[in-house]
Each structure stands twice: as structure tokens, then as C-alpha cells.
Design a protein around this nucleic acid. Structure first.
Length: 199
DNA sequence: TGGCCGATATGCT
DNA sequence: GCATATCGGCCAA
């Protein structure tokens, strides 16, 4: 979705922002989670605006702690890598690893679909656009994520365009966890209809 | 090797 | 709002 900045000799407003770099993911995990709100992530024909994320570090709910064999190596040893995990047997969830000084990953929880809606509908088996990627496992399925992506470099598997103008986001407790519920490390785009649940 | 639990989704009341 | 399918990952034994 790149668009030229110059048309007919005049500068037009840029709708797209900067492409993310590996350095973007080296920052503290909460900053990366917050910074991804409003970004557009693309994989193949499918793209969506990120409207909900969560940060995980070395807290008690983090896979760095609860999955020391499968999750910790990526969360603790890398940034700008894909971390895919399975949950409840039949679901996959998509994370990007963060923080070049310690363990961290951001869970992508919901997208506002912007391209490839037909492919997403086929993969998900639902019609309503609000339901295509309104949850972490729905999102992973809509984008065609597989376990084989885990460990790959994020920017080799996805195109990621960061917002060009500030985007309002709200911080809330994370969803579906029992430990560390008090930490406000879930970020939701203000006013979106595409989150897994209200802010 | 068995048992428990989970960063969920879906369908039904 | 609530029940439950389903199985990978982990650990105790």
C-alpha cells in the first residue's frame, strides 16, 4: 500500500508511515506494544490495522516464566523475531519478540482488516469483518500463520508500516490470565469496533 | 507416563 | 452469561 508523495507536482498528504526496522523491536516491550497500535501489518494478500496488543516480559503470566522450554528461548534471547505458540490444543497465537536488554514479546490480539478480506473469510469461515481477526487466535488464522514461522525474522515474514501520526490508545489489564492481572499492559485503539472486547 | 492447566473460540441459554 | 472441546507443554512421580 505504498503511495507516492508527489502527484501532479504537488505534495499530497502521506497516508503511510515509516516501515518498521529491527531497531523498533529493541525497545522496552510496553513501548513496542503501544507503538504497534495503528500500524498496518501485511502478510501476502492480507493486511490489517493493529487495534489491540499485549506486552509480556518476565512477569508471572509470561511464557518466559510459564513455558521455559518453548517460549523462553525466543522471548529471552531475541528481538524482532516471530514467536508462535499453541493454546487450548487447536489455536495458534502470533507474537513479535522485543527488548534487546531482556525477555519480551508482544501478542497481536486484534486487527481491523484492510486487504485480503476474501482470503481471511475463507480461512476463518465467518463473514462479518468485525469477527475476522477480533482475538489472537482469530488473527493468526486470518493471516495464515503457522508454527513454522516461529523463530523467523518478523520483517522477512511481514510488512509492517508504523502510523505516521499519533494514534490514541488506552491501557488496560491483559485478557485471559490469572497471574499479574494488575499490570495494565494491554493496549487498545480508542473507539475501535475490531478489538476482542471493549477497552 | 499420567495428570493438570491454559496469553481461546464457539455455541447455546 | 456460561459450558466445553481439545491437545501441547510442563512437571511430578
Amino acid at each position: 500500500m505504498p503511495c507516492s508523495a508527489i502527484v501532479n507536482g504537488r505534495h499530497h498528504e502521506r497516508r503511510d508511515g515509516a516501515l518498521a526496522t529491527d531497531a523498533f523491536f529493541a525497545a522496552p516491550t510496553q513501548d513496542v506494544a503501544r507503538g504497534l497500535i495503528g500500524a498496518v501489518v501485511r502478510r501476502g494478500a492480507c493486511a490489517g490495522r493493529i487495534v489491540e496488543t499485549e506486552a509480556y516480559t518476565d512477569d508471572a503470566a509470561s511464557h518466559f516464566v510459564t513455558r521455559p522450554r518453548s517460549g523462553a528461548p525466543l522471548m529471552g534471547g531475541t528481538h524482532a523475531r516471530v514467536y508462535v505458540y499453541s493454546i487450548y490444543g487447536v489455536h495458534l497465537c502470533l507474537n513479535f519478540t522485543t527488548d534487546d536488554t531482556g525477555p519480551g514479546a508482544v501478542l497481536l490480539r486484534a486487527l481491523e482488516p484492510v486487504a485480503g478480506l476474501g482470503v481471511m473469510r475463507r480461512r476463518r469461515g465467518v463473514e462479518r469483518v468485525e469477527h475476522l481477526a477480533s482475538g489472537p487466535a482469530k488473527l493468526a488464522r486470518a493471516l495464515g500463520v503457522t508454527r513454522r514461522l516461529s523463530g523467523r525474522r518478523v520483517l522477512e515474514e511481514f510488512e509492517l508500516v508504523l502510523p505516521s501520526t499519533p494514534v490514541p490508545a488506552e491501557a488496560t489489564p491483559r485478557v485471559g490470565i490469572r497471574q499479574a492481572r494488575e499490570l495494565p499492559w494491554r493496549f487498545v485503539l480508542v473507539g475501535t469496533r475490531f478489538a476482542s472486547r471493549p477497552g
